[in-house]
Design a binder for these strands. Structure first.
Lengths: 364, 364
DNA sequence: CTGTTAGCGCATTCAA
DNA sequence: TTGAATGCGCTAACAG
């Protein structure tokens, strides 16, 4: 049933034999332990090189009780948002000679089983991106294994979470809009069961309040962080006849959808309506017009998560850093038009318009 | 030095004791082996559940000689192109109860060391995305470990490669452009040391040839698959005064750059110039205008890669599937204008134009 | 069918 | 400093 159980071609025993020392000494040398005669050390190193020795980490792990591996759970690697985080984590791990065991999972249940799988693999620590589980829920299944949350989707619990000052970021962005003369600003927020969505919306509202601008509940709509969702939300806004001169989308993907929806209506950005996003996603600078947005240092956040987890793996009690955001003003935002209701130009007739924005986007 | 070498809280010995059987029997039951009395089976299952037993895969691996793990190397997880592939691989692996050890690496050297690391971890197989290494080079370092290449960047070697009919895809897309009346079509190709780039360019040229349209070398420029590169390439094309009514970019990212460059010149797509991309990236349907492109089933390719690798891990000699592409006609392509040289509308003055396309895109 | 005996490859006591 | 012995948790012959 089992074809060929591959055995290690060369082990420390081979090296020991060749170098004329004991396996224990080989182990010491290979692991950089002190207290080995230089002559033997060299002999071992040479032998290992000549034999093209490749350490068996699995064996090392079992013997040492630590796997040199960190597990990461990502909701959807196909989106550059998560991809950036993933990249940061992977590269940081690499620099510490740790390995990355990756799992993707969206539903809470999938997350739980993914966690379980990762733990079976004896990961030393965990980086959870976009988790929907609460801290205690996670702790219940991971036990002592250190973990840190990044961009979590749960409102409660900050103990394990790297926080990004999203409220401040949203506030700054909104102030920018206000400074351009916008008063009726629509906000497309992400799912409100997610911490980030709520934070950004709150920041938005705070900025309005501090400027003495009354917020119109009708101008706040919820979507799902997808381009499709942003498109639909904007269409709803438009259809409802709400007047607004700017749209602040909770992320760049939704902003992109908004741009498309506005275009469909013959509205020109930023002449008729300003649009802003959030995240400074990989494509934000290349939209037309390039998108005003708020940069979240995802890559750096990923790195910080790793540092924090590894520190705890080493037994140190690492504090979780927080991250500020940075406003990126580009061309999708401009001065508010004097008339509140944006003027339309006749939409260009399109034969294929009906199918144009079908969700052909992602793979699968 | 070593804080707490975590030991397994509950092992098969504990279960054996509790269920009143031998560890071997526990192992059998847990691994679903046949030939165990139902009574004992049940006892073991119950004991395991009560003790909340979590198998130690590391130990299993060491004992069985197989790690239930596949390694994947990705050039850049922050791009949805690679992300889609990654997602396909991960999910397929998951469905086979395999794990994914991920490594990112761009330079050949990084790739080599990444491979080495993965092998130290005793991965059962490898999926290499966008590899710059030749088959024999890879084999030299992985030995017997099965591997498959996906979207490789090397021209030579198809033995390990899942091929996508990119030439046919490019041909079909070009025919579409030709059918719209375009005769002077610019092509922004990817790096010509990459198989995909060459294939697509060749498909482009073939379609022109079969239509009896002479190709103009001046209309073919090389870029690096990035948005920034597409922007710059298009600007070069424009600056050189080349006349063209359509642009076929080697991938969607470059197409997006092209859209921006054309916009900067006051050219309207598709009225003045048609633009087409390749990949059907996650944002393609949401550009303005939505991008005509060629879909590559990346997710499915990832899955196929997994099936193939795992089959070989099992000792079967799996053939590598090939994939066709699908033309996605959207709104960025339209009939060619009668006059060859596209007409411009005065570019709108922009204060921030200079900084607008700075490479603020990726993280890092 | 089931238990006993050996390892898997390496780290790590403990003596020497 | 170094080597011999023991074990990490589990699988896999081998007997019984």
């Amino acid at each position: 049933m089992d074809p060929r159980r591959r055995k290690q071609p060369v082990t420390i025993y081979d090296i020991a034999y060749r170098a004329g020392v004991s396996p224990a000494t080989v182990s010491r040398v290979l692991r950089g332990a002190s207290g080995v005669a230089e002559a033997k050390r060299q002999a071992v190193v040479d032998a290992a090189a000549e034999l093209r020795y490749r350490p068996n980490l699995i064996a090392q792990d079992l013997a040492s009780g630590r796997s040199q591996t960190v597990g990461m759970i990502v909701p959807d690697a196909a989106h550059s948002f998560w991809g950036s985080l993933l990249k940061g984590v992977e590269e940081a791990l690499h620099s510490f000679s740790y390995h990355l065991l990756m799992a993707s999972a969206q539903l809470p249940d999938g997350e739980r089983s993914a966690l379980d799988l990762l733990l079976r693999h004896q990961v030393d620590g965990l980086v959870l991106a976009g988790s929907t589980l609460a801290d205690d829920g996670i702790a219940a299944i991971v036990g002592e294994t250190p973990f840190v949350n990044v961009c979590r989707r749960r409102l409660a619990g900050t103990a394990s979470r790297i926080v990004v000052y999203n409220r401040a970021g949203a506030r700054e962005l909104t102030r920018h809009l206000l400074s351009l003369g916008h008063r009726r600003i629509a906000h497309i927020c992400g799912p409100l069961w997610q911490a980030d969505s709520v934070d950004r919306r709150d920041g938005f509202l705070e900025a309005l309040a501090e400027a003495g601008v009354e917020s119109d509940p009708g101008l706040i709509v919820e979507a799902d962080f997808s381009m499709q969702g942003g498109l639909a939300a904007t269409q709803r806004l438009l259809a409802a006849g709400h007047e607004f001169t700017a749209v602040f989308a909770g992320n760049d993907e939704m902003a992109m959808g908004a741009l498309l929806a506005l275009d469909r209506e013959g509205l020109v950005v930023p002449r008729d309506v300003s649009v802003a996003g959030y995240d400074d996603d990989i494509f934000a600078a290349f939209c037309r017009p390039p998108l005003t947005t708020v940069r979240q240092p995802l890559y750096e956040i990923g790195q910080a998560a790793v540092r924090s987890v590894l520190a705890r793996v080493e037994g140190e009690d690492a504090a979780l850093p927080s991250f500020a955001t940075a406003l990126r003003v580009r061309e999708s935002t401009g001065p508010a038009r004097p008339r509140t209701r944006a003027r339309r130009r006749p939409a260009t007739p399109r034969a294929r318009a009906g199918t144009a924005w079908k969700p052909v986007s992602g793979p699968r």
